[in-house]
């Protein structure tokens, strides 16, 4: 298999994968309506509206959870 064929297959395969992933995501969003923490996606809009430092976070980082995310 020469490199151009490989390129074509790679391109096709990845495009299909991405399309499936994207449509899967659409399905996921509209069927589940809530994320893993049980929070309605739409309520995340409040992160912009109630963004004072004393406002209650939509999804609070709990104290006992270790902050291993990010870096």
């Amino acid at each position: 298999m020469d490199i151009a064929t490989f390129q074509a297959y790679g391109y096709f395969g990845i495009t299909v994968f991405m399309v499936v992933a994207l449509y899967g995501y659409i399905y996921h969003l509209y069927s589940k309506k809530k994320d893993a923490a049980g929070i309605d996606y739409e309520s995340y809009s409040n992160m912009a509206l109630n963004d004072d430092i004393t406002d209650e976070p939509v999804n609070k980082v709990s104290d006992k959870e270790t902050k291993k995310v990010g870096e």
């Binding site: 390129q7 790679g10 391109y11 990845i14 991405m18 899967g24 995501y25 996921h28 969003l29 589940k32 994320d35 893993a36 923490a37 995310v69 990010g70 870096e71």
Partner: peptide, 27 residues
């Protein structure tokens, strides 16, 4: 899978990076 990604900024970042990088590689 999607739930998990949303909660892990690091892996989220890796996901974004892979998504945008593969176009360049293939091209």
């Amino acid at each position: 899978m999607f739930h998990w990604l949303e909660k892990h900024p690091f892996f989220f970042a890796v996901g974004v990076f892979v998504t945008i990088a593969f176009a360049g590689l293939i091209e």
